[in-house]
């Protein structure tokens, strides 16, 4: 073999055969896991709080429905509770808006909120007799199956991201689908109830839980971490107490699910990271860097 060195060039005749593999330079530009930042356990647990809260709200809703259905709960009480929740939540939203100076809220915006909430209130009130008889021809088994599927879809597609400071919150398609799935599910469940007031109060409660609470939760993820953890614990505790008085075994299953989502799943993710093998090299599609006109 000639003393000439092998070069990574196609245009010159190499002193080596075509299947020669240069021992040093072959795959020398291969980089493994170049931008790898390992997750640590506790921050992941904190991030999973949003998921826990969402699943807990679904469980709370189911518990409330069962109580209404078995006439253990007066619909009027539920109505007052959801109205109270709405005002508390709106106050919280206002407080957060004041502390976050970038989002400017005017009086016109408040009138808009008032108008749309009144509209939803009246529309639901008008629609509740229709909703009550909506699925009269369908058997209850199908309704349980449909609502279970829709709640699973809701939990899978919900938006668990936290709001970045300064960025306008953009509704993604998946979160819209998620909200629609939850509302449809509550509508079909409500159609099993006996009287119009119960239907009205359940659907109103569903709108608060699945349309307004995710927006608030999105916002709440910027608050201090201990408060987030406290909120998660409160929501989970409420979900378990509400269920425990109905059925102990279901309450145990719920607590197992919440525990798995909060503490086991982050652990699995941390463990799975050691299998991460990201391969980067000159063959990857380069990312063009362009100075967009400002």
């Amino acid at each position: 073999m000639s003393a000439r060195q092998w070069e990574k060039a196609l245009w010159k005749t190499q002193p080596h055969p075509d299947n020669y593999i240069p021992p040093d330079s072959f795959l020398s530009s291969l980089r493994k896991n170049p931008n790898f930042k390992p997750y640590t356990y506790w921050p992941l647990v904190l991030l999973s709080c949003a998921i826990t809260q969402h699943i807990a709200t679904i469980f709370i809703f189911i518990a409330v429905f069962v109580r209404l259905n078995e006439r253990l709960l007066d619909p009027r009480v539920l109505l007052w509770v959801s109205a109270g929740c709405f005002f508390a939540g709106y106050m919280l939203w206002e407080v957060l808006s004041y502390s976050d100076l970038q989002v400017v809220y005017g009086t016109s915006n408040r009138t808009k909120v008032l108008k749309s909430s009144l509209l939803v209130f009246l529309a639901l009130m008008g629609l509740s007799p229709v909703l009550r008889t909506l699925t009269a021809a369908t058997s209850s088994d199908s309704i349980w199956a449909i609502s279970a599927c829709l709640f699973i879809l809701n939990a899978l597609l919900a938006d668990y991201s936290s709001m970045k400071t300064g960025a306008q919150s953009q509704e993604r398609l998946t979160s819209v689908i998620s909200m629609n799935a939850a509302i449809s599910s509550s509508v079909v469940l409500a159609s099993r109830l006996a009287d119009d007031l119960a239907v009205f109060s359940l659907v109103l409660f569903a709108v608060h839980l699945f349309a307004l609470f995710p927006i608030l939760r999105h916002r709440l993820q910027v608050i201090p971490k201990p408060l987030q953890a406290l909120l998660t614990v409160l929501v989970s505790a409420m979900c378990i107490t509400l269920t425990a008085s109905l059925s102990i075994s279901v309450a145990i299953i719920y607590s197992a699910v919440l525990f798995a989502v909060t503490f086991v799943a982050p652990g699995v993710l941390v463990w799975a990271q050691k299998h991460k093998n990201e391969i980067r090299g000159p063959w990857d599609v380069a990312v063009p860097r362009i100075n967009w006109p400002s």
């Binding site: 990574k8 060039a9 196609l10 245009w11 010159k12 380069a286 990312v287 063009p288 860097r289 362009i290 100075n291």
Partner: peptide
Amino acid sequence: PEILPEDMISFANPDED
């Protein structure tokens, strides 16, 4: 980078500047 000798081609990073 392998197909032509350096004096026939100028290279740039995929970057506007």
